[in-house]
Design a protein around this nucleic acid. Sequence first.
DNA 1: CAAGAATATGACAAATATGTTACAGCAGTG
DNA 2: CACTGCTGTAACATATTTGTCATATTCTTG
Lengths: 231, 231
Amino acid sequence: MRQVKQILIVDDETAIREMIAVALEMAGFECIEADNALTAHALIIDAKPDMVLLDWMMPKMSGIELARRLRSDQLTADIPIIMLTARDDEDHKIHGLEAGIDDYITKPFSPRELVARLKSVLRRVTPKGIDQVVEVEGLRLDPVSHRASSEEVALDLGPTEYRLLQFFMSHQDRAYSRTQLLDMVWGGNVYVEERTVDVHIRRLRKALGDRHQHLIQTVRGTGYRFSTQTQ
Amino acid sequence: MRQVKQILIVDDETAIREMIAVALEMAGFECIEADNALTAHALIIDAKPDMVLLDWMMPKMSGIELARRLRSDQLTADIPIIMLTARDDEDHKIHGLEAGIDDYITKPFSPRELVARLKSVLRRVTPKGIDQVVEVEGLRLDPVSHRASSEEVALDLGPTEYRLLQFFMSHQDRAYSRTQLLDMVWGGNVYVEERTVDVHIRRLRKALGDRHQHLIQTVRGTGYRFSTQTQ
DNA sequence: CAAGAATATGACAAATATGTTACAGCAGTG
DNA sequence: CACTGCTGTAACATATTTGTCATATTCTTG
């Protein structure tokens, strides 16, 4: 899980992009930019931003078409989109809704309005419970304080082990292949050896200690699983 | 269950095609090649590959043009495409995203990255099978957690026995020959003795215990069957 | 019932999968 | 720069699985 939210700004006018970027960065977001839909698409696949700000009118390829494409791909279907439209584009809203746009902002807009809407969409889209404390047999993980503890004693986990544990604790009783774990925990655009997962599983198990080791189960021929049930 | 995926490599440079082909074949893919878009198009219609690796820049017809054609034909619309682009292609005019590329990879790239991306796209595009729990007379198989249990007690199955049981439970009341079982459970392209099936049937029966042994029935002269009805 | 055919079973060595450790590179830090 | 914590990889150690064989056992048919 990324702490700072990354926003992709797609607009063909550099000046507008810059203005937005400055506003968002002041509000504590991280920005990447694209000046056309194709570059944007490549960037989205590559960087998986937390949100896309999309200009309606762009040369070559409209924002709405990009939006539709993003929705049709499982990998990008969940990324929220905010459309930037001109005031007299009312009827486009209909098309936009079909394509699954999360919100609209009409130009011109104030930076404050932009930030407010953006936060609102992020809040709405972020699955609730993602900040929920999870506890299993005395093993406790608190996403807010970013800490894990076993019987009130803090565990010493590296960042990767923490994310791995968080993923497992919020997806219990499911077997995951190494590849799936790499996708879900490492992120879709890193290319590391599958066996690296084993090493991190090992580190996690070690950190969990005898008391909780059994929760991380090996599923032979498949991968790993987090479960309280006996293997 | 596993089928070898066939990849079509389209690039006008023989050396690059060869390099990619070697990398992919080492990773267990099957490759076919084309050195221009027209040949590629014919090959795609003919061989229906599982994925197309497409060079951006080619004489006669550009990769993007081919991509567009593939998308517009219902027969080829679902074939995933990965574009190979050169780093300095940035200034090339992009003619629309409606071509529907699934991923991009910039030259030069490492074989490992290529394979990783390719697998990732295939995974994303290929719909998963049904993850439905099956239960028969207290014998329970849960594909999600990848567990089999008899009266709530976990069974100790090897990977092959698990797959065998999963196949049987989702194809009940029907006799399968050893050859069919080898095809369906082992995968079409392995060569093992037919008698090996007997051994795994034996192992599965043993793991099922007295309570459920009767479900795996021998059909003399033919093969085996999974059924709740008495033999 | 006997003979022949088909299937069941146990043992085992080779092949695979996973566990574990060590190490080198890297980024951040004082 | 030395120091530190983290990561990914390789190498080696263990553990489990797999396919095959040899040998029972069961079944069918005459």
